[in-house]
Amino acid sequence: MTSLNIAIAGALVLLGVGLYGLLIMRNLIKIVIALQILGKGAILALVAAGAISGQTNLGQSVAVTLIVADTVVAVVGLALAVQVRRRFGSLDVNELSTLRG
């Protein structure tokens, strides 16, 4: 097992942890944290995959794009969380639901 494969495996585990967090979390800010973990996994996977396939620079440049996107996701998510807290007095996403089945 090469170190690159280890990186891929790590990326997958991070992905799993992030998904698990998304499923479990009810707090809006923690959901943003789970999204961030997912993002780290993806960045790692991109760079590792670039190295493995010999397209190191392509992988890295996409990774940079992803970092920026991820950061913006965090910013907007957090802004949303702050506003939600002000409006509803809670960060529980399931209380925001106005769509009643």
Binding site: L19, L23, I31, S97, G101
Partner: peptide
Amino acid sequence: RTQTGQLNWNVAGIV
């Protein structure tokens, strides 16, 4: 009944 409007269930559906 599946349309609970709850985010976690939506995520579960996506996953």
